[in-house]
Each structure stands twice: as C-alpha cells, then as structure tokens.
Write a protein that binds this DNA or RNA. Sequence first.
DNA 1: GCATGTCAAGTTGTG
DNA 2: CACAACTTGACATGC
Length: 305
Amino acid sequence: MLRFGLCCLFKEEAITFRTTTAKVLLIVPRDRQLLKLSEICLHNALNLKLSLETVQRLGIGAFRIMSPLFPRMTHPEIGYSLNILPDGETISSILEACRLFAADQQIRLSFHPDQFVVLSSPHPAVVANSIKELQYQAMLAKMVGADVINIHAGGVYGDKQAALLRFSDIYNCLPESVRSRLTLENDDVSYTPEDLLPFCKEHSIPLVYDVHHHRCNPDNLTVEEATEQAGATWKSLGREQHCHISSPKAGWGSGSPRPHADFIDQGDIPECWLNRVMTVDVEAKAKELAVVKLREDVCVILGLS
DNA sequence: GCATGTCAAGTTGTG
DNA sequence: CACAACTTGACATGC
C-alpha cells in the first residue's frame, strides 16, 4: 500500500516552527543566546509532536522534519548542544515522545538536508560543514526514530564520475549513524537516476526516486524502469522504498516546469506506483491539503473510496 | 501595526 | 559578471 508523506510544514493547521539568525544572536551574551535558543527549540519540539498527531489524524503516513528544527545548532560561532540549554531535558523528553508516537502510529519520519550539504565538493571546508550538518541531523533522526536522511549528489564540477568518487571517499568515512540513514536522490539539473543507480548499488545506498526531477532532467530510463530499479536499492536492504512527487506550477508546456504547484495533478501520478508498497513524499505548496487530496484521488482511482 | 528586507552555508544556469 | 533558482517562511527592522 502507498503511504503519502507531508514535507515539513502545514498550510491551514495552526502549527508553526520558529527560527532565529546568527546575526541577531551574536549581539547578545552567551546566556541570552542559549535562553532564546532554548525557547525556540522547546517550541519546535512541541510543534513537532503536534505535527505528528495532526498527520496521524489526517491519515498521512509520513512526515519530513525541517532541517532547522534546532536552529543554528552547527553554526561555527553559535553552535550548541541540547544539554546546555535551560530546557534541554524537557526538549529531549518531547523528542522521545515523538519517537514513541511515530513508532506506535507507524508514521515514517525523514530528513532532507538542504543544498549546502555537498559531499562531492572539491572544497574541504564545504565537505567538513556538510559532515557536521549530517551528524546533527543523524542525532535528531536517532532521537525521533527517522530512518532516512536524504541528500543530492551535489555539483558536477565538469566531471560526474570524479565527483561521485569524491562522494564515495567521504561516504566511507561517515559515522554509522549517518551512513545507515543516508540516501541519494536524483536532482533536476545534474544527476539522473541512471547516473546514480550503479553508484547506489555499489555502495548499498538507497535511491530516493523523484519522478518530477526525472521528468525535468530525463535519461534513458522510463518512469517504470526507474521506479523498479530504485525500488531494488531499498528491497535489497529490506527497507520500504521512498519516492517524491510534485507537479509543475506552470504546467508541462512553455516556461520552467521546475517550480512546484499547489496540488498534484492526477496526470502526474505514475500508474506503476499505484499498487506498490512505498512512501511518497508530496512536494506541493498546499502542504497537508495536497497530501489529503492526493490520497483521496488515488483511492478513487483504485476504487477504494 | 504593517510592509519589507534579511537570513550560515553551494552550485548551476540565466540575464 | 551578477544574481536568481532550488525551498520558504519567520523574524527583525523601520516607517
């Protein structure tokens, strides 16, 4: 059975996540920084719990947790750990409650570090920051029980194979908490499923197949072939496949198809997905409304409503 | 109060 | 060569 996932935020539900900036924190003393960060982390932990309860109520089966749940945690000057925050213990206990709730309700949790995490970069400082960020997300993933930390292969720098070789050197040195969760996703400008599949097989890294990116940045594989072959990278590890879907805001005609629409167009749902067991993250601006609608649409298509 | 510009970080493609 | 697109809002600032 398909399960659909919500990405990070809600449109109509009264759930918010707070953040702050290094610039503002740096003008106050350390104890004031930690106080403010503690309030924000506590707020975000409580709202993560509320998010999980809400997706459960809406029949949504997966949730992507926003990267800055604990804002600026790995910043070189602001960085902190939970145990030095005034409310650190409370925050930890709320994350533990999230883990138990998600496990009990079978809500699959994932992370998607943003574009600054680049393991294929030729710049050592970029890679070092990326590893720090991945360790932070692995810590969160462990606390809440998330099994996926999904990233892109990064830049090409004129030579994809050389870039992937740099990636694998770094990958082999990552801590187990990161390696056991790390997945690769085809992107919409550089790396296609065909580029990544041999690499994923060789290193036993699951491939998150983004069908919208594949349509924006196609290769010789059909959607059916890419779905099946990406699925094999999960199956060989005994894990449930994870995919992404979105629809182009401007349609498939003139103009860039890359920006995401509010909802998923029924015509964009691959038919071969309908009877698979897998998680599909819905990348749509209308957030939970789009996930609920897609789920209803698929139920109608399958005659289950 | 409300509108607006800013925010740690990378890479690519466009204007 | 500079800047927007990825994705995206929340928040600080200034009127």
